[in-house]
Design a protein around this nucleic acid. Structure first.
Lengths: 186, 186
DNA sequence: AAATATACTTACTAATAAGTAAGATGATGT
DNA sequence: ACATCATCTTACTTATTAGTAAGTATATTT
């Protein structure tokens, strides 16, 4: 696959996560890569197409991560901590996650992009509910809620804390993550 | 104060909370109100100015709500539930809260608008930490975290759950709120 | 009655956006 | 040597954006 294509995807993702979908333009990408506006359209005919591709790439990356954790026989704690580490890294880089940056713009997205965002969010949520269910069954996690509901709570905390940490300074993101973890300990 | 001015503020807020700051235009407002684009500029010379005014109005509304709760001698439970009800209403209307919709766009806001968003977020966070502190002291609430940290967790859950509920269907927002409440019970 | 302020409209400008059609360049395959 | 393909550039169009300058109508004040 083309290097330029991959760079566009990566740059587009970073732009969405720092400025938001409706604030970034093909010009932002072409200028940064030292190419012309039309070159970006060569790889991604429309912005809708680029947006969808960025989400698709992320879904793929997430599923590869899960496969990798399964093949390495990670238990539920290790899986949860790996997931949380993605968010700690996002926080360090002052970026949101894709769900948290595209979510508020959902009413402005095309149907295909929206469908892909829904898919990605559901995959993550479903996976999280899954490890919470099995973790609870194996007495590795302890909580009273329905796993589905607990997954929502944890996911929400991670997503919005990234947003709040860019607004409020002196924000202790790791303490938030630690609380999530402590809360699940038996 | 002018009725048109107030309508613009209200409409602008709703547009931010449904489409996002960078997706709405003065045209959206003028068309809806049956006036011309320039009439909106008459009241709010720039979009930055309108954005800032919308946040200022919200801060005022929040502070009036707090004053009202104090004068009616609301205890910590009643205050928390009143706050949560705002979010349940937002969910019913399929809208985000201002913090959750402007937060992801923070890097595209002017310094004055950004400052106002920071102020609003800090006021809410500080108030929430306050009732958690006094609620814990009076043994009305029970939790292990630092109140500051607990406030972040609860605030995050409310903010991001609104976002997630627009993405995932079959989303039980009230169950999320109920979990937050149950978690604080002694 | 004249002056003034309020609340707009008309008619623009300049910038930026997404997107396109046609052509240039160079590598690869036949 | 020739054709083909990928990867762009040049040069655009069309639409939308925030924003403005100047004018109009109506009500209020002096």
């Amino acid at each position: 696959m083309s290097v330029t294509r991959e760079k566009i995807i990566e740059l587009g993702e970073n732009l969405i996560r720092t400025k938001g979908y409706n604030a970034f333009s093909y010009q932002d990408i072409s200028t940064e890569l030292g190419i012309k506006n039309a070159a970006v359209h060569y790889y991604f005919p429309s912005k809708e197409n680029l947006g969808t591709s960025i989400i698709k790439t992320n879904i793929q990356r997430f599923e590869e991560m899960i496969d990798n954790m399964h093949s390495r026989k990670f238990d539920e704690w290790q899986q949860l901590e790996t997931f949380i580490k993605i968010y700690i890294k996002s926080h360090r880089e002052q970026k949101l996650c894709l769900v948290g940056s595209l979510g508020p713009d959902i009413n402005t997205l095309s149907n295909t992009t929206k469908a892909e965002l829904v898919k990605m969010t559901e995959i993550i949520h479903h996976w999280l509910a899954g490890i919470l269910t099995s973790g609870k069954m194996n007495n590795i996690f302890s909580f009273n809620d329905e796993p589905q509901n607990k997954a929502t709570l944890i996911f929400s905390c991670l997503v919005a804390s990234l947003q709040l940490s860019r607004i409020i300074d002196k924000f202790d993101y790791k303490a938030v993550c630690q609380s999530i973890i402590e809360d699940l300990k038996p």
